Simulated assay, not measured.
Amino acid sequence: MFVTKLIHFTKKLVRIFTRPMRGDRGEGGVIVHPYRGYGSHSEAFIMGRVFRQPGRLAGWKQGGVASDLVDVARRVVRHGVRDARVDIRLGATHATVTTDRDGYFHAHIDITHTLPAEAIWHSVKLQVVSEDDAISTETEIYIPPASTDLIVISDIDDTVMYTGVANKLKMLYRLFMEKADRRTAFPGVAALYRALYGGAEGNRQRPMLYVSRGPWSIYEVLEAFFNLNHIPVGPILFLREWGMTIKRPWPRKAEDHKSDVINNMLSLYDSLPFILIGDSGQRDPEVYTEIVKAHPDRVRAIYIRKVDNDPERDVAIEALANEVRLAGCELILAHDSVSMAEHALSKGYISEESCQAVREDTHEQQRQ
């Protein structure tokens, strides 16, 4: 039984890691991998990476586990293409950026034409030109419709999913060997996020923005996790770069990264209120409290998932709750997804029907 599970896990794991390179048909060369973007009706942000990888050996048969393992090896030795030109078109809007030394590109585009008012995902065409290759591809950016009434920003690690980003093998084991749609996500979290996405009317299509302490290299794994657990998709564009340089020998602190992300979102969507979701295991309560103090009346609620058994930590978070209350916000230390949903229902953020779905999903998963 264990051997069968191990084989199943290995196949799934390999497929995840080889997914972004299947488009090269084994020929190798320059590959472009854009990530899902975000923006408003006046500006948009898009990120991606251009990299070079070797082709398969001549005569190598494509398909099967052996071929996938070869692709894993090709992925390991690939490297970013620096100074590649990336031409970006969003409707009538055009911009050009170049990749950095690791092959990443970051585009901030001023939108010069009117976008469809109620569309939420907009197609973006990219053409990447390097020294010897020209590649065309597409991606999407999320822009809130006019009906949007608030924005949700959520941490991922220990908030949506059990800790694993710091231990990737442990996370992947849970994702593919322990019923991914049940055990990798906290009970009821998928129903809760669907409720927040739809709002009290069920059709709000609110922006769901996700923050992770992990590096960009796990982007595909996080996307698979969201799809497997039926959690509303949104830009997962806020992962840290872990590359080290002489000037910056250590990764940025997670709380600094998160604070910068939220401040940028408050500026981008300056007419909308926010809900912030995190956990008690890290410094989310402290970071969110400082955000509320700096931006009074912009954050409607803070939901903190309790993931520890530390009474002193509970006291500290309660003190923070008193601080944000003075700034017109509520901080809820929640033992489960139901507690968050019931508070959201009491404030009119979600419907009774969707709150009941959270209760049912939570109780069902807790029994398993």
Rank of each mutant, 00 (worst) to 15 (best):
M171P: 01
M171L: 15
M171T: 03
M171N: 04
Y173V: 02
R174W: 08
L175A: 13
L175S: 13
F176N: 02
M177P: 01
K179S: 12
K179E: 15
D181R: 08
R182W: 14
R183D: 14
A185M: 10
A185K: 15
P187M: 04
V189W: 02
V189S: 07
A190K: 03
L192S: 02
L192G: 05
L192Y: 02
Y193I: 00
R194W: 01
R194A: 06
R194S: 07
R194P: 03
R194D: 09
A195K: 03
G198S: 07
G199M: 04
E201G: 13
E201D: 12
E201V: 00
N203W: 05
R204Q: 14
R204G: 12
R204C: 06
Q205R: 14
P207Y: 00
P207W: 01
M208R: 02
L209D: 02
Y210T: 06
V211W: 11
R213L: 10
R213K: 13
G214S: 15
G214C: 12
G214L: 11
P215R: 13
W216D: 13
S217G: 10
L222H: 12
L222W: 10
E223R: 15
E223C: 13
A224R: 09
F225M: 08
F225Q: 04
F225L: 13
F226G: 03
F226R: 01
N227A: 09
N227P: 00
L228Q: 04
H230P: 00
H230F: 01
P232S: 09
P232A: 08
P232L: 07
G234E: 08
P235E: 10
L237F: 11
F238H: 15
F238T: 07
L239S: 15
R240G: 13
R240N: 14
W242K: 09
W242T: 10
G243H: 10
M244R: 14
T245Q: 02
I246S: 00
I246D: 00
R248N: 08
R248A: 06
R248D: 05
R248Y: 00
